[in-house]
Design a protein around this nucleic acid. Structure first.
Length: 578
RNA sequence: CGGGCUGUGGCGCAGUUUGGUAGCGCGCUUCGUUCGGGACGAAGAGGUCCCGGGUUCAAGUCCCGGCAGCCCGACCA
C-alpha cells in the first residue's frame, strides 16, 4: 500500500519557473507539483505535497502526545461574539476574515483559537484538581494578510498546530512551557531544519516570557541575533548588547561652539563636512510619551553610527506608551527643526540615553536651529540625561550580553512560538478555578504555535539545489524513487520485469516507493527525480540488470552505490536514508 | 493604504507603439525513429486575448470604468 506508480500519480512537473514565485523553495514546490496556487496566499496541496504536509503534522502530533498534550479539533468557523468578549475582535481588525450566515449572525474564520479553547476549558473545568491540562489542535488558520508572500511562507490559509495549557500558577506553567520548548526542539530537529530558539520581545503585558523558533533562511522575514560562543539568541527586537562602560565625570573640552552645516539634516553629511567619524555625532530621536499631565516630549540619544531600538525605548519608559514623531507632528511644531535637534532643546521634558553616550569625548549634535550644529557638547555640562537605557539596536559585532563575544545576525523564518500568556484570556473569558481553600483564581495560561505548512516551506527553502528539492527522510513523500530504464533493446522486458519485481518487493516490505514506470526517456526521468527530491533514487537499467545490480543514489549528497538486485530490499529497509 | 508593473490555450512568453487572418517555446494527443541526464520528425487538439461599457466598417491593440495578480513601501505574527 505504500507504493505509487508515477504513471498513475496526479502530477505534472513544470519545466519553466512559475512567474509568481520568487524564492527557491516556493518555485521548486510549484515546479515539482507539490502545490498549486488557487488565490493569493491560498494553495492547493497535490498528492506529493499532501504527503509531506501529513508527515510534518504527524511529527508534531507525536511530539505533542509525548508530553501529554491532548489533541482536539475546534471550529474554524467561529462566532465573532467570542472575539468581542476578549477584545481581540478589534485588535485583529481587518486581519480576520469575517462572514455572516443567512440570519446575518457574524462569524470569523479562525486566525488562532485562544478564545474558543479557553471558553471550552472554562465550561468543563473549575477545580485546581483538574489542572494542569494541555490541549492542541492541528487545523487550518486564516489571516487576511496585507501582503501574502513567498508562497506558503506567508499564506492567508495555513496549517498550524496551536496548543494551550491551563495552570493553577506560574510555576506550573513554567514546567509545561519547558516541556513544550523541548518538544519544539525535537520537532524541528526531526524535520531536518537548521533552526535556533530565540528570545522574543516581551508582549504588552511586560513580564511575559516567550521564545520563537527560527528556521535559518535568507528569505526569512525576521532578523535574529545569536552568539557563536554561548547559547544567547534573541529576536533582533528583543536583543540587547552588553552595554559599554560609562565614562564618569565631565569630559574636558572647549566651550560649545555653533558651526554652519547648511542643508545637512543627516548624520553622514555633517560628519563628512566636519571631518569627524559618524560615531562622534549624537543622534537625537524625538518622541512623545504619555506622562501624568498628558503627552511629554522626549529625546532618545545614541551615537551617530547606531540606530535606536524603538522596542528598547518603549521598554525603558514602560508602562507609559511611546510614539515617535511623524512628519505631521514635525509640521505642527516648527520649533522642532528636524535634522538639527540636540539634547539641550528647551522643549524636551525627558532625555533617555544609551550608556555609550557617556563617552570619553564631547559630541557633535544639532544646534536646535536649521542649518546649524554644535560641537564640543559635553554631557553634564551642555546637556543632561534623565534616564539611561540600552537603546542601541544590536548590530553584528556587538558584545554578547552573556559572554561578551561578538554577536552575529541572521535572517529566519518563524516556524514556532511558545508563549507564557498569564491570565489575559482567562480573565477576559472567565476561565477560573477554585483552590483548596475555596477561593476563585483565573487560570494561568500558556499558548504554543507551530506553523506546520510553514515548516514545509522552510524545509524546501533550506534543502534544495539548482536541480530540485532534497527532502529529509522524515518528511519525504516517498523514501525511494525507483526509476526503470528498460529502453528498447533486447533486455527491455527483462529490465521492466526486474523493476516491477523490485517495486513489489519494496512495497511489500513497507518501503514508501514511487515507481517511475512511465514510457519516458532517461533524461526526463532523472530530471524529474532530482526535482521531486526523494532521498534515495534507485535506477534499474539494462547494464545493471545484466550484472544483477541496481544503482542507488542519495539525492542530498549525490553519493552512489550499486546494490545487488536481491539485496536491495534488505539494504533499504535496514536504513532507508543511508 | 501609497508607488510601480502585469493580465493573451495547462505553464512560460511575443503580439498592443502604428486597429485588419491570434502566434512562439514547453506541456498534451496520434504515428514513426530514438532510449543512462529534460531526443527528433510529421500530423493534431486546445484560446470568451481578465470583466463591463464605449469609439470604429473592423478592437488583443484605442478610450472609460471595474476586477485580479506580482514587486517595493507602510503594516503585522
Amino acid at each position: 500500500m505504500s507504493g505509487t506508480r508515477l504513471s498513475q500519480l496526479f502530477l505534472r512537473t513544470l519545466r519553466d519557473d512559475p512567474a509568481d514565485a520568487d524564492t527557491d523553495g516556493h518555485r521548486l514546490l510549484v515546479r515539482a507539483g507539490f502545490i498549486r496556487r488557487v488565490a493569493s496566499g491560498v494553495y492547493a496541496w497535490l498528492p506529493l505535497g499532501q504527503r509531506v504536509l501529513a508527515r510534518t503534522a504527524q511529527i508534531v502530533r507525536e511530539e505533542m502526545d509525548r508530553i501529554g498534550a491532548q489533541e482536539i479539533t475546534v471550529p474554524i468557523l467561529q462566532p465573532l461574539e467570542l472575539w468581542a468578549r476578549s477584545g481581540r475582535d478589534a485588535a485583529y481588525g481587518p486581519l480576520m476574515f469575517r462572514l455572516q450566515d443567512r440570519k446575518e449572525a457574524q462569524f470569523a474564520l479562525s486566525p488562532t483559537a485562544e478564545e474558543v479553547v479557553t471558553t471550552l476549558v472554562a465550561g468543563e473545568y473549575s477545580s485546581y484538581r483538574d489542572l494542569p491540562v494541555t490541549l492542541y489542535q492541528i487545523n487550518w488558520k486564516y489571516r487576511d494578510e496585507l501582503r501574502p508572500r513567498f508562497g506558503l511562507l506567508r499564506a492567508r490559509e495555513f496549517l498550524m498546530k496551536d496548543g494551550y495549557s491551563f495552570h493553577v500558577d506560574v510555576d506550573d506553567l513554567k514546567r509545561t512551557y519547558q516541556d513544550m520548548y523541548d518538544a519544539y526542539d525535537r520537532i524541528f530537529t526531526r524535520c531536518g531544519l537548521v533552526f535556533r530558539a530565540v528570545e522574543a520581545e516581551a508582549g504588552e503585558m511586560g513580564g511575559d516570557t516567550n521564545h520563537e523558533f527560527m528556521a535559518v533562511a535568507a528569505v526569512g522575514e525576521d532578523d535574529f541575533v545569536w552568539c557563536p560562543s554561548c547559547e544567547y539568541a534573541a529576536n533582533v527586537e528583543a536583543a540587547r548588547r552588553r552595554p559599554p562602560t560609562r565614562h564618569e565625570g565631565l569630559v574636558d573640552a572647549p566651550e560649545m561652539e555653533v558651526v554652519d552645516t547648511p542643508d545637512m539634516p543627516g548624520i553622514a553629511p555633517v560628519a563628512a563636512h566636519l571631518g569627524v567619524p559618524e560615531s562622534a555625532l549624537l543622534k537625537c530621536i524625538v518622541f512623545e510619551v504619555d506622562g501624568a499631565d498628558g503627552p511629554e516630549l522626549g529625546a532618545a540619544l545614541v551615537p551617530g553610527d547606531r540606530d535606536v531600538s524603538v522596542h528598547a525605548l518603549a521598554l525603558s519608559l514602560a508602562p507609559h506608551p511611546v510614539r515617535l514623531l511623524t512628519d505631521e507632528d514635525f509640521a505642527k511644531r516648527p520649533e522642532l527643526t528636524r535634522g538639527y535637534l540636540g539634547p539641550h532643546h528647551a522643549a524636551l521634558e525627558v532625555v533617555v540615553a544609551d550608556p555609550s553616550v557617556a563617552a570619553d569625548h564631547p559630541w557633535v549634535t544639532g544646534a536646535n536651529a536649521a542649518d546649524r550644529h554644535v560641537r564640543h557638547a559635553v554631557l553634564g555640562r551642555d546637556f543632561a540625561v534623565d534616564e539611561w537605557a540600552d537603546l542601541v539596536a544590536v548590530a553584528p559585532g556587538d558584545a554578547c550580553p552573556r559572554c561578551g563575544s561578538a554577536l552575529a545576525i541572521d535572517r529566519g523564518i518563524e516556524v514556532g512560538h511558545v508563549f507564557q500568556l498569564g491570565t489575559k484570556y482567562s480573565e477576559a473569558l472567565d476561565a477560573r478555578y477554585q483552590d483548596d481553600a475555596g477561593d476563585q483564581h483565573p487560570m494561568v495560561m500558556g499558548c504554543y504555535g507551530v506553523g506546520v505548512s510553514r515548516i514545509v516551506a522552510a524545509v524546501a527553502e533550506q534543502l534544495h539545489d539548482d536541480d530540485g528539492l532534497a527532502w529529509p527522510a522524515a518528511l519525504a513523500p516517498f523514501q525511494v524513487h525507483l526509476v526503470a530504464l528498460p529502453g528498447r533493446g533486447e533486455a527491455a522486458e527483462q529490465v521492466s520485469a526486474a523493476a516491477d519485481r523490485l517495486y513489489d518487493e519494496l512495497t511489500a516490505a513497507g518501503v514508501d516507493v514511487l515507481y517511475d514506470d512511465r514510457d519516458a526517456s532517461p533524461g526526463v526521468k532523472f530530471a524529474d527525480a532530482d526535482l521531486l527530491g526523494l532521498p534515495v533514487r534507485l535506477t534499474v537499467g539494462a547494464k545493471g540488470v545484466a550484472r544483477g545490480v541496481a544503482e542507488a543514489r542519495l539525492r542530498a549528497t549525490g553519493a552512489e552505490r550499486e546494490l545487488a538486485l536481491d539485496a536491495v530490499v534488505a539494504v533499504l529497509t535496514d536504513a532507508p536514508s543511508s
